[in-house]
Design a protein around this nucleic acid. Structure first.
Lengths: 159, 159
DNA sequence: TTCGATTAAATTGCTTACGATTTAAAATAA
DNA sequence: TTATTTTAAATCGTAAGCAATTTAATCGAA
């Protein structure tokens, strides 16, 4: 009985470890590609948001990436120092900071557009078919949603 | 044509971002549970390995968790300072360091055995069925394997 | 046996992550 | 209007991660 529970502790059957490992391995696949642009994976994610939306508040970027200002502010300052983005405190609401792309930041988009294809190639393998990956992605999206809701619910209940 | 490729850049359809988000959200679910033991998630993973294997070299832990000494050494030193593990340089091969549990480290296991059940509950939801999660876990394991092989292959080819 | 390659950990430097707190502005209530 | 609360970023401290390098021990071929 108790022994059954202890078995659950074993590493190999834990979905959370697999997510943790998958995330790090996936990020590592980006390594050589992002190195050519001299940016990191989280920086790439922020740029993806800006390439799509042109201009966003820090909190809006945070909502999309599920990151908060304690992570984003230093990251955005680094992107600003590199000359990829502007950080401008809003006139209408001085609490907010609007992030927008510089010309160089905009230019990076054309260099980055070959990346998704190359990444997709890394996932395709004899052992994992495309339809399997599509099903996988759907469940993954639901898992993210469920966990995120659980976490934000928990955080709210503490106020 | 080109525009098609650019669409791929958009965030919402990228499996890598979902993995990145899922990993962080999953770790966050552990938060309150691990806080009671006063350990972090990566520390918990190392302890899982030791609870199962009693005694392991740093590199063996690294193989299981896909982490290297640059991450593990500081983490293990922290576990040592807290009195959960011993770090002992091997007599037969002084390059290796053997990690083993202290009595306190062993004791933590009984406190931790309720964690997996509680985590599993967080994944279960109306929108994600148990069979769906099982299928998901199988693909996830394959994805980790494929990506990891790709990364280590890439690293080896650079020597 | 000896010297060059390999291996295991550790170290260095930098960038995330994130809990907790702080600061300042805006919204709301009194 | 004024006081209180809420909100958005920023700040602080700590712990991962990881590329690149270093240190020291072992292996292996000449």
């Amino acid at each position: 009985m108790e022994e059954n529970r202890l078995k659950d502790l074993y590493l190999d059957r834990q979905i959370c470890f697999l997510l943790y490992a998958a995330s790090r391995q996936a990020t590592k696949v980006y390594g050589p590609l992002l190195k050519e642009l001299d940016i990191t994976y989280p920086q790439y994610l922020v740029l993806l948001v800006l390439w799509e939306h042109k201009e966003m508040k820090v909190s809006e970027i945070g909502n999309l990436l599920m990151l908060e200002s304690n992570t984003l502010t230093p990251l955005l300052k680094r992107l600003e120092q590199r000359g990829f983005v502007f950080r401008l405190r809003s006139n209408t609401d001085e609490r907010c900071v609007t992030i927008s792309l510089t010309e160089n930041g905009e230019k990076l988009k054309s260099k980055a557009c070959t990346i998704p294809g190359k990444i997709a190639d890394a996932f395709v393998d004899d052992s994992v078919s495309i339809p399997e990956l599509q099903t996988f992605q759907k469940t993954l999206a639901k898992v993210v949603k469920v966990l995120h809701e659980k976490n934000t619910m928990l955080a709210d209940s503490e106020l």
